[in-house]
């Protein structure tokens, strides 16, 4: 029993590691602040393109969404970070993370938007178009407001996933929260920094996870 506490809940080690972890947390926050708005915007663009009247554009958008949802984010990240140099482009860890995460999160948000727009009955389009509103106006004032409201739990839940996703940036040595914690672990041969990092993630995300559960349940019943 003491072994478990010593290995996982070693308070002195946690105290020493905390400053490093907080710097990592700051980096995590920076990544999120950049990737989440970009992903939300990119996803909307993907979703709107997937409804284009031009078949080529439509197919490209759907293929894009499916492709970037099929590739594991870590693979995409490694490919961008280690593979692009062979094509002459040498991105920094942060840039590689930004590119890979943008592609990944846009496709997930895009799929959510797309399903939301599709769930709005044709009658709403008929009514709006029959009063002379253009397709774009109908989308902007009638369909999208309803669609976003319908998929809000999915959007929030996906945003939680994005925050958790930042942890894989540690693999390309970007000093975010998990990287800092793992660094502390390898130096102290003790897993308590990892437990501390886990606790920080929990504090950040647990309330939102609870909220999403409640939202999902309310919609289902």
């Amino acid at each position: 029993m003491e072994a478990i506490v010593e290995q996982f809940f070693n308070i002195p080690i946690m105290q020493r590691a905390l400053p490093l972890l907080l710097m990592g947390l700051r980096q995590t926050a920076l990544i999120c602040l950049m990737v989440i708005p970009l992903g939300l915007a990119g996803g909307l663009a993907f979703a709107l393109l997937s409804r284009s009247s031009l078949r080529a554009v439509r197919s490209a958008a759907v293929v894009g969404i499916d492709f970037f949802r099929a590739v594991p984010p870590l693979v995409l990240l490694i490919f961008v970070y280690s593979g692009l140099p062979f094509a002459g482009v040498r991105p920094s860890p942060f840039t590689a993370v930004a590119i890979a995460f943008f592609l990944n999160t846009s496709s997930y948000y895009g799929e959510i938007y797309r399903a939301g727009i599709e769930s709005i009955g044709l009658g709403q389009w008929d009514a709006a178009r029959s009063t002379g509103l253009t397709a774009s106006q109908t989308l902007a004032y009638v369909v999208l407001p309803q669609a976003v409201r319908n998929v809000l739990p999915d959007l929030v839940s996906n945003t939680v996933e994005v925050v958790k996703l930042t942890s894989i940036a540690s693999v390309v040595a970007l000093p975010e929260l998990l990287y800092s914690a793992d660094m502390a672990r390898s130096v102290t041969f003790n897993s308590s920094p990892l437990v501390l990092a886990a606790a920080i993630y929990l504090v950040m995300l647990w309330p939102i996870v609870r909220l999403v559960s409640r939202l999902e349940r309310r919609i289902a019943t």
């Binding site: 958790k164 930042t166 540690s170 998990l178 914690a181 886990a198 993630y201 647990w206």
Partner: peptide, 10 residues
């Protein structure tokens, strides 16, 4: 709430 990678390393 926890990222899987954190759990894996732990």
């Amino acid at each position: 709430a926890l990222p899987p990678l954190v759990l894996v390393l732990l």
